[in-house]
């Protein structure tokens, strides 16, 4: 049997290998390290290339004078953005994600905003996407805006139908920003499942008072992505259904 050799007690003790080289060969080591680094950098570059870079950069809020909220005078600024069914922007003909997945819904034209601290921010959202029922009807209520209301197509509402939500615009404060800050505005859906891309939209207008300085993350709370629970794809990738709001 093969492994008989295991029990062959070695009496000969071979000793020094002729020509044995005591010096380490640096080339093999260096090559190994270089290849390992290259592999790591390559994998990192792959993931980096998957990272969404907002093509339109940061949208800085437009100044609109000053406003008085609850007796406090503060700067007033405006922001406007859209939510599209397709990231290729078939509504206005400009792709939000030239290199991304064109069939995923996305906020556009950018999803990185900049607003001043402690200012009244009036946001106008044009919502072009269809939708459905929220996982958590809690997010169907408008929260954190001035007076807790938003305007949908000119009508003042405090909540929308949880079964017909396209997206939500939800911003959370975290430690390092303003921990108590919270904003949730549901954006009602347009038509039925197939009525996308036809240019119809809801215009949602709301105002909120920005918190202290920091980078706030925002995301959509309506599962509008891919996979079983619709949390995949645009929900999990940067730049489609999430972004940042810089308060400076």
């Amino acid at each position: 049997m093969v492994a008989d050799s295991n029990l062959q007690v070695d009496q000969t003790d071979v000793g020094e290998e002729p020509g044995g080289d005591d010096r380490a060969r640096p080339l093999g080591l260096i090559l190994t390290v270089v290849i390992a680094l290259a592999a790591t950098v390559g994998i990192g570059a792959f993931f980096w290339s998957q990272t969404y870079q907002s093509p339109s950069g940061t949208q800085v809020a437009q100044s609109a004078g000053t406003a008085v909220v609850n007796g406090v005078t503060m700067p007033h600024v405006t922001l406007s953005f859209q939510s599209y069914p397709d990231a290729n922007g078939s509504v206005n003909g400009v792709a939000i994600h030239p290199a991304g997945n064109p069939s995923w819904p996305a906020f556009g034209m950018t999803n990185v905003f900049q607003v001043p601290t402690h200012a009244l921010v009036t946001v106008t959202v044009s919502q072009y996407d269809s939708g459905g029922a929220l996982n958590n009807p809690w997010f169907a209520r408008v929260r954190g805006t001035v007076d807790g209301v938003a305007t949908v197509d000119g009508k003042v509402v405090t909540a929308v139908d949880p079964n017909n939500v396209g997206h939500t615009f939800t911003v959370r404060g975290t430690p390092g920003t303003d921990p108590g800050f919270f904003l949730n505005v549901p954006l009602p859906s347009v038509g039925g499942e197939n009525q996308t891309d036809v240019g119809q939209h809801h215009t949602v207008v709301f105002s909120f008072v920005s918190g202290s300085a920091g980078t706030y993350a925002w995301n959509c709370e309506f599962p509008c992505g891919t996979m079983v629970a619709a949390f995949g794809g645009p929900m999990g990738a940067y730049g489609y259904m999430s972004g940042f709001m810089h308060v400076v």
Binding site: D10, G15, E16, E17, G20, D21, A24, R25, G28
Partner: peptide, 11 residues
């Protein structure tokens, strides 16, 4: 990567 280096008293 270096040449085989048996130790003293191998194996």
């Amino acid at each position: 990567g270096s040449r085989p280096r048996p130790t003293r008293g191998a194996p």
